[in-house]
Every structure is written in structure tokens, then in C-alpha cells.
């Protein structure tokens, strides 16, 4: 799985390409947590190319959400597909995130 990093001003957008499961989830967790610390909370996950995530990836999002929460921020995710939204809703993770329809809305929310 490839994870692309884009800068939108002071906001960093991580775009994962493919399902996040198994070993990929470990890489995803490391990238997320590093980015959260480096960007001081100005972080967005672009989920437009993520068809599915597993429990480890869910935990990675929760861990990152906690880190950002300690900084006074919230993890933001955009363009999640129906499956991903369902997973986030069912597991209660959605309540720890801010969800947006697209990158522009997510980036603008920092302004």
C-alpha cells in the first residue's frame, strides 16, 4: 500500500491507496502518528482510495485521535466510502473523528 503525503498550506493530507489491513495497518499507524506530531494537529486522512480498513487501522485512528486530542485537535477524515463510514459508525470511532465530503472542506475547516 502506498501512502502519499500532500501539503495544503500548513495542513498535511495523507492519502492511502488501497485497503489498510494486516502489515499495511502497522505502516499506516506509524505514518499517522508521526504526521500527527510533526504537523501539530493539522492533519487530514484522504480516504477516497481506501476501500476497507481492519481493526488495527481502526486502533491506529483512535491512537492518532488521542494524540491530536491532547494537542486540542481532532482527527479529520474526508471522502470515506460507504463501507468505511459504516465501519467507523459501528465501532463508535466516528464519534472521535470529524468527517468531510472532500479534501477542500477538510482543509478549510482548519481556517
Amino acid at each position: 500500500m502506498r501512502i502519499d503525503e500532500q501539503k495544503h498550506g500548513a495542513v498535511t493530507v495523507l492519502r492511502a491507496n488501497g485497503p489498510i489491513a494486516g502489515e499495511d495497518a502497522t505502516d499506516f499507524a506509524l505514518r499517522l502518528q508521526r504526521a500527527a506530531k510533526e504537523t501539530l494537529g493539522r492533519l487530514v486522512i484522504d480516504a477516497s482510495a481506501i476501500p476497507f480498513i481492519d481493526s488495527e487501522a481502526i486502533e491506529a485512528m483512535l491512537d492518532t485521535s488521542e494524540i491530536l486530542g491532547d494537542m486540542g485537535g481532532t482527527l479529520k477524515i474526508c471522502a470515506a466510502n460507504e463501507t468505511l463510514r459504516e465501519v467507523l459508525d459501528l465501532t463508535g470511532v466516528a464519534s472521535s473523528l470529524e468527517q468531510f465530503e472532500n479534501i477542500s472542506d477538510a482543509v478549510r475547516s482548519f481556517l
Binding site: 476497507f52 481492519d54 481493526s55 481502526i58 459501528l90 465501532t91 463508535g92
Partner: peptide, 19 residues
């Protein structure tokens, strides 16, 4: 399976999830 009422997206997970 979910559309036919047999499960949901989280049933594809290997690990058990309880909320």
C-alpha cells in the same frame, strides 16, 4: 451479506470488535 441482512462491514474483520 450485509445487504441481505446477514452481517455488516465489520464482519470482514479478523479481530472481534465489541462496543
Amino acid at each position: 451479506g450485509s445487504k441481505h441482512g446477514r452481517g455488516d462491514a465489520c464482519d470482514a474483520l479478523w479481530h472481534g470488535i465489541v462496543v
